[in-house]
Amino acid sequence: MNFIKTTEQTSHYDHLEKMSVKELLTNINKEDKTVPDAVEKQIPQIEVLIEEIVPKFEDGGRLFYMGAGTSGRLGIVDASECPPTFGVPYDMVIGLMAGGDVAIRKAVEFAEDSEEQGWKDLQKHKISEKDVVIGIAASGTTPYVIGALKACNENNIITGCITCNKNSPMSEVAQYPIEVIVGPEFVTGSSRMKAGTAQKLVLNMISTSVMIRLGRVKGNKMVDMQLSNHKLVNRAIRMIMEEIPVDENTAKALLNEYLSVRKAVKAYHGKRQ
């Protein structure tokens, strides 16, 4: 199959430096509006990957995101938001990035070019058949990610990927590829723009849907969220008041005692029975 990097194709816009600020914003926004439609076309592919992840979690497995540059950072962001949002352990969803933690803030030269390092990084976490690994690369050509996915396949570990090019080398390796084709970027080759937005949307869909299927949301509320600041504590108090017929002081007392919306509500119903 032919492989053309649409993420590297020339922008539909030219002479950007001559545009007014309003023209720049309007045109960037015009391009951004196309991203959700591109994601929608991949819902069937996202669904089958999620259906593979849920039972792995139920069996004690973990989810790994792997990427480089913007893609790696997006994976780390999504992984880091799962514990505070859903109350899961910090080692349940793990983001790995070429170049390590240093690369989160500052690019590490040539870190993504090693086809062996990704698997080495996974081995540090004692990767096993219980786990799932999702590679993230707008280009679909990152050696760090592709090498890791190949090694996972050889070791009976489920693999998926999120890319923004059709028929990429990464898609050929991943068992469950997700290809969100967003076309050329407003600034030619700047895949932190539409491609990055597309990847973020897909990551939101994967982690949120998986956690809901695992029972980490009740109704539409984050009943297992960590109470890490006053805003979240106040939100938790309101959630308890909406769930059971108590006043604010009682809700606050229940939350202080059980330190969890779910546990507070469960304890209240238990005492009423």
Rank of each mutant, 00 (worst) to 15 (best):
Ser11Ile: 13
His12Gln: 14
His15Leu: 03
His15Gln: 13
Met19Lys: 13
Lys22Phe: 15
Glu23Val: 09
Leu24His: 14
Leu25Cys: 05
Leu25Pro: 08
Asn29Gly: 09
Glu31Tyr: 05
Lys33Thr: 14
Lys33Cys: 12
Val35Asn: 10
Pro36Ile: 04
Pro36Asp: 08
Ala38Trp: 04
Ile50Glu: 00
Glu51Gly: 02
Val54Pro: 07
Pro55Met: 12
Phe57Ala: 01
Asp59Ser: 15
Asp59Met: 15
Leu63Asn: 09
Phe64Arg: 03
Gly67Val: 01
Gly69Gln: 02
Thr70Glu: 01
Gly75Leu: 01
Ile76His: 04
Asp78Gly: 01
Glu81Thr: 07
Pro83Phe: 00
Phe86Gln: 04
Tyr90Leu: 06
Tyr90Glu: 11
Gly95Cys: 01
Gly95Ala: 03
Gly95Ser: 09
Met97Asn: 03
Gly100Glu: 06
Val102Arg: 15
Arg105Val: 09
Val108Lys: 11
Phe110Val: 14
Gly118Phe: 08
Trp119Arg: 13
Gln123Phe: 10
Ile127Trp: 01
Asp131Pro: 04
Ile136Trp: 00
Gly140His: 03
Ile146Asn: 10
Glu154Gln: 15
Glu154Ala: 15
Glu154Pro: 06
Cys164Thr: 09
Cys164Ser: 05
Met170Glu: 14
Ser171Val: 03
Glu172Ser: 06
Val173Leu: 06
Gln175Tyr: 06
Glu179Leu: 08
Val182Leu: 03
Pro184Cys: 13
Gly189Phe: 07
Met193Trp: 05
Ala195Glu: 09
Gly196Val: 05
Leu203Cys: 11
Met205Val: 13
Ser207Ala: 10
Ser207Ile: 04
Thr208Gln: 14
Met211Tyr: 13
Ile212Glu: 11
Ile212Cys: 09
Leu214Val: 05
Lys221Tyr: 00
Val223Glu: 04
Asp224Asn: 15
Met225Pro: 09
Gln226Pro: 10
Gln226Val: 14
Gln226His: 13
Lys231Gly: 01
Leu232Pro: 00
Leu232Ala: 05
Ala236Trp: 06
Ile244Glu: 00
Ile244His: 06
Ala251Pro: 07
Ala253Cys: 07
Glu257Pro: 08
Leu259Ser: 10
Ala264Pro: 03
Val265Thr: 08
Tyr268Ile: 06
